[in-house]
């Protein structure tokens, strides 16, 4: 088994120590950081996503794999320092204004990074204007909003309305999610996508950014 396969295999097992060891080996063997990232780490995370979708593994397994992914990325980061880690897109995420529940949003952020996106996590209780300002400043292609309360869901619409006002619809896509959020609600407020869980959200973001 070559080193990149070993990285992918151990990532799938959630073994961050082994991923660290084999990533070091790969670097020593002069494999390019980009190849290690794409054909070792991201390749492994893609398989994890497929296994989760097929109900072969569960959320904790996915999160252990994500930790292993981060272990490898930590070693690659200094090597990408000049141009930064290559990303497949930039996503601004946050829990909407008035809402402090951030577990779901955090999981989406972890999985987006694992899939190769650059993630700007604004945290929780994020105002609509902050979403827009940061997305504009960072030239993000997607805004991801999470809400756990029915009372805070209307803030998602305000963000989309602000995008319309600023004629940014189409340039900046939106995806929403959270326990009370439904596909129907996403359609009603004009969101571009709805993610029913963290893995599904990543697939949808890939779709929005033309990756699938």
């Amino acid at each position: 088994m070559d080193i990149l396969n070993k990285i992918s295999e151990h990532l799938q097992l959630g073994d961050d120590e082994k991923v660290r060891i084999f990533t070091k080996e790969a670097i020593k063997a002069k494999i390019s950081p980009k190849e290690i990232l794409n054909n070792g780490l991201i390749f492994g995370m893609d398989i994890i996503g497929k296994k989760y979708k097929a109900h072969e593994i569960f959320l904790p397994d996915v999160l252990l794999a994500a930790k292993a992914m981060y272990a490898g990325m930590d070693l690659l980061r200094p090597m990408f320092i000049k141009g930064g880690i290559p990303t497949i897109g930039k996503v601004v995420i946050g829990t909407v204004q008035g809402d402090l529940h951030d577990i779901g949003k955090n999981l989406v952020g972890i999985m987006l990074k694992g899939a190769g996106f650059e993630v700007i996590d604004l945290g929780n209780d994020v105002s609509p204007s902050e979403f827009i300002e940061i997305a504009k400043k960072e030239d993000a292609s997607v805004i991801g909003m999470s809400a756990l309360l029915t009372t805070t869901m209307p803030f998602m619409k305000i963000v989309i309305d602000l995008l319309k006002e600023e004629r940014l619809i189409g340039k900046i896509k939106t995806i929403i999610g959270g326990a009370p959020v439904t596909e129907e609600f996403a359609r009603e407020i004009g969101a571009d996508a709805f993610g029913y869980d963290s893995i599904n959200a990543i697939e949808k973001v890939k779709g929005l950014t033309g990756m699938t």
């Binding site: 904790p60 397994d61 999160l63 994500a66 930790k67 272990a71 577990i103 999981l107």
Partner: peptide
């Protein structure tokens, strides 16, 4: 503690503790 675990990349344990 849950927040700390996420900060330390202990996502699975953080999520389980939540």
């Amino acid at each position: 503690k849950i927040g700390e675990l996420f900060e330390l990349d202990e996502f699975a344990l953080g999520s389980m503790l939540d």
